[in-house]
Amino acid sequence: MKNLLLFLIVLPFLCYSKIEQTPKTIHVFVALCDNANQGIVPVPAKLGNGQDARNNLYWGAMYGVKAYFKKSQDWEVLTTVVNPTDLIVERVLFKHKTTNTYLLADAYNGKYIQQATINFLESNAGNNSLKISSNQTELCFGGDADLLAYVGHDGLMEFDVEGDFEGKDTSTKDTIILACVSKTYFKAYLKLTKANPLVWTTGLMAPEAYTLKSSIDGWILNESDLQIRERAAQAYHKYQKCGIRGARKLLVTGY
């Protein structure tokens, strides 16, 4: 009887420990800035070469996804792979230093922005599963990731997309879309996927990584959608000096 009581007391802690050990995964789709292949206001040539991840505005530059997360005290780089596919110039796997959270960032060749957009939307619908092993741990990305994000130019301003966007998951995925006027242009597609827009935009914006990281910080802490959106707005205002009211108007949550 004494052993049974001890087991019943310990069991919840064992279950909690097991749950805590399950990795949380984030998959970020970055369409590299590309002066030649995207309908953008041209940036300096070094920043706007969509085939050069190292110097690209949205990847290797100071506020690019790879550079910003690499310099962060909260994340560490586990692996870097050059040209993992014909579409992706570079892939980086990060591990959060204090939680069991992994982030996979894919830098898409800028001329393939349309396919990057399709892959992002299909993943929101629960498609394109991707498994990566790290330190004998199998990590699930693509359509099996817990959080998805898109960073870059809003190509839907110039083209339409077709794909398997009908949501299949029983659980709603969280998603972040840092691109100009993304709520207007992504809304119809995203509704098909049944994803939950944590943060997206109502106007023109600089899709730099401080907004993404601040949003992810709140998501890791299981904050509410409104709290996460507030983190994004505060970060955007801090770096862009646009006024917090303007940042809150720009960065919104939900449909």
Rank of each mutant, 00 (worst) to 15 (best):
M1W: 12
F7D: 01
P12T: 03
I19R: 10
I19E: 13
P23T: 01
I26C: 04
D34K: 07
D34S: 06
N37R: 09
Q51F: 07
R54Q: 04
N56T: 11
N56I: 14
Y58F: 15
G60K: 03
V65W: 07
K66Q: 06
F69E: 08
Q73A: 14
D74H: 14
V77E: 11
L78V: 01
V82T: 12
D86I: 02
L87Y: 08
I88C: 07
D106H: 00
N109P: 09
N109M: 10
N109F: 06
Y112K: 08
A116N: 09
N119D: 15
N128I: 02
S133N: 11
S134Q: 10
N135F: 12
Q136H: 14
Q136V: 10
T137R: 11
T137G: 04
E138F: 00
E138G: 08
L139V: 05
G142R: 01
D144G: 01
A145D: 04
L148F: 02
Y150P: 13
D154W: 00
L156W: 05
G163Q: 11
D169M: 14
C180I: 06
V181I: 07
V181Y: 10
Y185A: 08
K187R: 15
N196H: 15
W200Y: 09
T201M: 03
G203A: 09
G203C: 11
M205H: 09
S214R: 09
S214E: 08
D217N: 15
D225Q: 04
R229L: 09
R231E: 05
A232E: 02
K238Q: 11
K238A: 11
R248S: 04
